[in-house]
């Protein structure tokens, strides 16, 4: 078992943990504007962790370059999609949850 495989395993574990916590957050938070926090941040980092783990497993060649392109693409696109969703909801008049309101 070489060092790349071990780093890959650790990063896969961290990434899967982040993704699971993000899903729990999407389930637990009380309204839309708080739900986009885990979906926009923790999910992005978890996915980047998993894919970077795969890069370490692969070594350096064209395939890992392709993985790197996917990582950069996800890091740019995920916040943009989150922003588009939040902006659309805000324009259409969804009110942000305040402390003390009931869950939606």
């Amino acid at each position: 078992m070489d060092i790349g495989t071990i780093i890959c395993g650790v990063l896969l574990f961290i990434g899967c943990f982040f993704i699971l916590v993000a899903s729990v957050g999407v389930l637990r938070f009380p309204d839309f504007f708080t739900r986009i926090h885990p979906a926009g941040k923790t999910d992005t980092l978890g996915q980047a962790c998993v894919l970077i783990g795969l890069i370490f497993y692969e070594g350096f060649d064209f395939i890992s370059l392709k993985l790197l392109i996917i990582v950069v693409f996800l890091l740019v696109v995920n916040p943009t999609a989150t922003y588009a969703l939040a902006n659309a909801a805000f324009i259409s008049g969804v009110k942000p949850w305040k402390k003390g309101d009931k869950r939606q």
């Binding site: 982040f18 916590v21 993000a22 729990v24 957050g25 637990r28 938070f29 009380p30 504007f33 708080t34 926090h37 885990p38 941040k41 923790t42 980092l45 942000p96 949850w97 305040k98 402390k99």
Partner: peptide, 18 residues
């Protein structure tokens, strides 16, 4: 930021004040 969000998510009391 991610450790902050993870702490808030897993905290049973849901200490948020948006």
């Amino acid at each position: 930021a991610n450790f902050e969000v993870i702490y808030i998510t897993l905290h049973p009391g849901m200490k948020i004040d948006p």
